[in-house]
Simulated assay, not measured.
Amino acid sequence: MSVASGECVAILGHSGSGKSTLLNLIAGLDRPSSGSVTVDGTRVDRLGEAGSAKYRRASIGMIFQFFHLLDDLTVLDNVMVPARLAGMGKGEAKRRAVELLGSLGIDRHAGAYPQRLSGGQRQRVAVARALMNKPALLLADEPTGALDSNSAEGVRRLLLDLNSEGQTILLVTHDAQLAASTAHRTIELVDGAVERDVVNDCGGAGPAARTPLTRPTGAVG
C-alpha cells in the first residue's frame, strides 16, 4: 500500500485485523518480518532505536483515542512537550504552541489543566501537540472513539481542515461512516492483509503527487 503526500487515507478493520500493528510499523515501534516501510523518504525499517526516536520526533504526529495528555501539565505545556524533546528553545516552542492553540480555537484554555476540559477540547489539545513539530505524517488512532457525537463531528471537521491545508493523514477507525466522510480512500484490513482499497466519494482536498508511505512485499501480521 502507498499513501500520497497531502492525502487522507482511512484504515478500516475489525479488532485483530492488524491496524495497530500497521501503525506501530509506520511509527518505527515495530519492525516488519518482511518487506519495507518508507515514510517521507526514510526507510523506517532500517532505523536503530535512536534513529527511530529521532524519526518519530521529526516526521510523525500521533493522535490517540484517549488523548494521553499529562494531567500535571497545563494545556500549553502539554503542547510544548514534543518541541522541547526535539531541542527547540522554550521561547520558540511557546510561540509555536500558542499559535497552534489559537488556530484550533482553544487558546483561552492554555493555562488550564486537561482534566478541566471536555473530551472534544482535550482531543484538540492532542491534535495541537501532534502538529507541534510539523510532521510529514499525522497518525490518528480512533481519534473520535472516546467522544460524544457532537465532539466527534468537531474532530472530523478538524481533520478535514488539516488535510485541506496539505497535512497527510492516516486515520485508523472502526467507523465506516467516519472513514467514508473524512478520507480520500478507505483501505480495509483483514487478518493482516489489505482486502480492499477503494476511493471514497467525499473527503478532503485532492492529494499531491504520490509518494510511498509503505511498500510491504507480504502481509503485515
Rank of each mutant, 00 (worst) to 15 (best):
71 D>G: 11
96 R>L: 09
121 Q>I: 07
48 G>Y: 01
38 T>A: 05
58 A>E: 15
119 G>V: 09
95 R>K: 14
108 R>T: 13
70 L>P: 00
86 A>N: 04
90 K>R: 15
82 P>T: 02
125 V>T: 15
34 S>A: 12
71 D>I: 00
102 G>M: 09
20 S>H: 09
92 E>M: 08
81 V>Q: 11
60 I>P: 03
117 L>N: 12
45 D>S: 09
60 I>K: 04
66 F>H: 11
34 S>L: 01
15 S>R: 10
22 L>R: 08
81 V>K: 00
22 L>K: 03
132 M>E: 09
86 A>V: 04
99 E>S: 14
120 G>E: 15
129 R>K: 13
35 G>S: 07
109 H>W: 14
17 S>G: 05
112 A>W: 07
93 A>K: 11
116 R>F: 12
42 T>C: 06
132 M>R: 01
19 K>W: 06
96 R>S: 06
93 A>V: 02
106 I>V: 15
58 A>G: 05
57 R>G: 14
118 S>Q: 13
133 N>I: 13
55 Y>Q: 06
15 S>W: 08
47 L>A: 07
40 D>K: 00
22 L>W: 02
73 L>N: 06
58 A>T: 15
45 D>N: 05
34 S>I: 00
15 S>P: 13
34 S>Y: 00
22 L>A: 03
27 A>N: 04
105 G>M: 11
120 G>D: 15
102 G>K: 14
24 N>K: 09
63 I>D: 14
17 S>K: 04
73 L>I: 06
133 N>M: 08
128 A>Q: 12
117 L>W: 11
102 G>L: 07
114 P>A: 12
72 D>N: 15
48 G>W: 02
18 G>S: 09
122 R>L: 02
100 L>S: 02
59 S>H: 15
13 G>M: 11
27 A>Q: 06
79 V>L: 08
85 L>Y: 14
107 D>Y: 09
13 G>T: 11
114 P>G: 12
61 G>T: 10
74 T>P: 14
124 R>K: 15
50 A>M: 01
53 A>K: 00
80 M>K: 14
54 K>H: 12
85 L>M: 15
39 V>R: 02
61 G>Q: 07
57 R>D: 10
112 A>S: 15
115 Q>P: 00
79 V>R: 02
134 K>I: 07
122 R>P: 04
104 L>D: 06
19 K>T: 03
66 F>G: 01
64 F>G: 05
32 P>S: 04
21 T>A: 04
93 A>F: 06
60 I>R: 03
48 G>R: 01
124 R>Q: 06
87 G>C: 03
129 R>F: 05
95 R>F: 01
126 A>P: 03
31 R>M: 08
80 M>I: 10
24 N>T: 04
36 S>T: 13
87 G>Y: 05
35 G>Y: 04
81 V>A: 14
52 S>E: 09
21 T>W: 05
48 G>N: 12
95 R>G: 01
70 L>R: 04
130 A>Y: 01
89 G>I: 14
90 K>M: 09
125 V>M: 03
71 D>T: 10
66 F>C: 06
19 K>A: 03
27 A>M: 04
57 R>L: 15
44 V>H: 01
13 G>R: 04
124 R>D: 02
39 V>E: 04
105 G>K: 13
63 I>S: 10
41 G>S: 00
77 D>M: 11
128 A>I: 13
65 Q>W: 07
131 L>P: 09
26 I>D: 01
43 R>I: 00
88 M>N: 03
